[in-house]
Design a protein around this nucleic acid. Structure first.
Lengths: 213, 213
DNA sequence: CCTACCGATCGGTAGG
DNA sequence: CCTACCGATCGGTAGG
């Protein structure tokens, strides 16, 4: 009688669940090894299938990258909205602070998503429609808070897009500096979150209208 | 008589000038094709030499990457100091604005340098000393302006490093969003610089002490 | 600074 | 979803 070897991980995939497993594998490669570590073959190996299997679910490498990025945008949007829901204040500056906290928290928890979205891995010449929509939805959450704050007179500093872009730039820049390990190494995760919170408050004050300060 | 072919580019290199040519070639690859387009072989080909030649000047690929990054830090420092020299105001908020303009202007003009410095191309586990020093010098320019502004009472918002990090994060985040083409494509270069300038003023107001607003 | 070579990895396809 | 194969590219070394 033949010795029964342990089931291979591949046996666990069916009905297209391999697709999500490959997304997770790609994300893990990005998080641990950076953009250069992401390949279809490595993702397939991590998922326990042959290197030809991914082509049953993704037309090419770009398709996998886009799928990861789209999921990243969706989760980022959820993270920001969750933080917004937890914020009991109704004034725009504090709601902006909550958004920033959500963004930074998500970035530090899931660096792979930010690398694939912003790290130049995506081919921008021909982005799939779903990815554009997901990105727009994430931006609209921020823009909505800013626009309402400007209308209510709680914020100032320019048109909605300029102010929103300023907020986005700061939390995004801080997130990327943390992820890219550009900050001194003695700044640990806990300190990063603390500095992030302080910075977000600073920005909230900066865009607040002078009369309300 | 043998036909005399046109001189190969390789004939132009001597006395170690190939080293700088390889740095420039690597920079061009990074600027045009992103982090994934940088390889020792491609850089050698761009410089017109065999793929083994670079090893006469760089121990391995990491050494070339570090050399590009170090030069990037030096030029970034120069760009910030030049903009600071052109700033005729003495108050910290406006000097911070000049620094930010210098940073964004350099980033948009030389995206390859920022990609190699912050794009996760460098192996952070064992950075050469020269690179660390160059990075520290660039940061010190910013930190100096912030620290003097806090001492003079022109700025507020926290300790020097937190305020400096907030400023750095914003201009860095905006620069990366522009470079990574994460902004809508209808935002052209000119608009980017205009929005950048507006954003920098916004931040300058944000970190200004309330009494001086 | 060159040619020639090494092993490894990659994206992708053929054919089942 | 598999094995087997393709051409291309990579970092790096031997030897001159």
């Amino acid at each position: 009688m033949a010795i029964r070897v342990a089931r291979k991980p591949s046996d666990a995939y069916q009905h297209g669940s391999l697709r999500q497993a490959l997304v997770q594998a790609g994300l893990k490669l990005l998080s641990e090894g950076g953009a250069g570590a992401l390949s279809l073959r490595a993702a397939a190996q991590l998922a326990g299938v042959s290197h030809a299997a991914p082509y049953r679910h993704f037309r090419d490498k770009d398709a996998l990258v886009s799928a990861i990025a789209e999921q990243g945008f969706l989760l980022l949007t959820e993270a920001m909205q969750a933080e917004l829901g937890r914020c009991r204040h109704e004034d725009a500056p504090r709601r902006l602070g909550a958004l920033g906290q959500g963004y930074i928290g998500f970035a530090l928890a899931h660096p792979g998503y930010l690398r694939v979205i912003f790290g130049g891995v995506i081919d921008k010449t021909n982005p799939p429609e779903g990815l554009l929509i997901a990105g727009q939805r994430a931006y609209d959450v921020l823009r909505g808070v800013v626009a309402r704050g400007l209308e209510a007179g709680e914020l100032s500093g320019g048109d909605p897009d300029t102010v929103a872009l300023a907020c986005w730039s700061m939390v995004h820049g801080f997130s990327m500096l943390c992820i890219d390990q550009a900050l001194p190494s003695f700044v640990d995760r806990k300190t990063q979150l603390k500095i992030g919170a302080q910075m977000v408050r600073l920005l909230a004050v900066g865009v607040q209208t002078p009369a309300k300060r």
